[in-house]
């Protein structure tokens, strides 16, 4: 890039004063490629020009009302909130109500690991979210929005499960890690077969492989025993790593 023009020649260029033709061309050619000098030119503009641009910018300044709270909320949770909250509440309440029915193991404990996954499925369902088609065509649709919505699910679900578990005596020490592990697995699988399908697959697998046998046999299943915690921690880390390394796969949801 050529040397920057002097402030004198920029000022004369701005005010339209006489400049030798060669200097004029040099200044103009330089301005095309130099952002700093375009800023200097803007500062050197004569008062009648700055008054005009200031007036135009003032007219164009946003005047709308400040962003309301809902706007911040939908940046995290899906805007189709009502069915999603209702489902979460229903599942937890049903588990608390069922608790006395099962012989030995707690229903809250058995269901806890798949509640967040169901929330994720609802957040990305075409049938539940009316604007799903629109959302998935925008640049924001991707891993970041997936993680934001999953986080919102966990923020709602985990306290509900804690209360439910406290009422029925299911300690979070048993279900918290499996809960996060299943969620991470579903997200990782979602990069391959789609989030809704992955969430439903994970939930069905859990129902078939863990809840079914536990209801038939009774007792706390091995996968929920404290001894399984290291395995679940490994699953959580592995799932998170898979999500991280395949982040581009979430562009199409």
């Amino acid at each position: 890039m050529s040397e920057h023009p002097t402030s004198g020649s920029i000022a004369r260029y701005a005010s339209g004063d006489e400049l030798p033709a060669d200097v004029l061309w040099a200044v103009e050619a330089h301005l095309e490629t130099c952002q700093t000098c375009r800023l200097r030119l803007a500062d050197a503009a004569p008062p009648q020009v700055t008054a005009l641009t200031a007036a135009v910018w003032a007219e164009m300044a946003p005047t709308g009302a400040p962003v309301r709270r809902r706007h911040r909320l939908v940046r995290w949770a899906t805007p189709a909130l009502a069915p999603w909250l209702a489902m979460t509440a229903f599942v937890v309440l049903a588990a608390v109500a069922l608790d006395g029915v099962l012989p030995t193991s707690s229903a809250v404990l058995l269901i806890a690991p798949i509640v967040p996954v169901l929330g994720v499925a609802v957040a990305w369902s075409r049938g539940v979210d009316p604007a799903h088609e629109l959302v998935v065509s925008t640049p924001r649709a991707g891993l970041q929005l997936v993680l934001r919505r999953t986080f919102a699910v966990l923020v709602v679900v985990l306290p509900a499960l804690l209360v439910g578990g406290w009422l029925t005596g299911a300690s979070p020490a048993y279900w918290l890690l499996p809960c996060l592990g299943v969620t991470a697995t579903a997200l990782a699988l979602g990069g391959v077969i789609g989030l809704r399908r992955a969430a439903i697959t994970a939930a069905s697998a859990w129902v078939l492989l863990v809840i079914g046998p536990a209801v038939v046999v009774g007792g706390v299943p091995g996968v929920l025993a404290p001894g399984a915690a290291p395995v679940w921690a490994a699953v959580l880390v592995g799932g998170a790593a898979a999500v991280f390394f395949r982040s581009a796969a979430y562009a199409r949801l």
Binding site: R68, V74, P79, H132, T138, P139
Partner: peptide, 22 residues
Amino acid sequence: DFGYYKRFTVREFVEYVAWLKE
């Protein structure tokens, strides 16, 4: 099938899409 959030105002909805479009 243009789906929308019924409780949103026109401005809120268009603002939400603007946010989605980064």
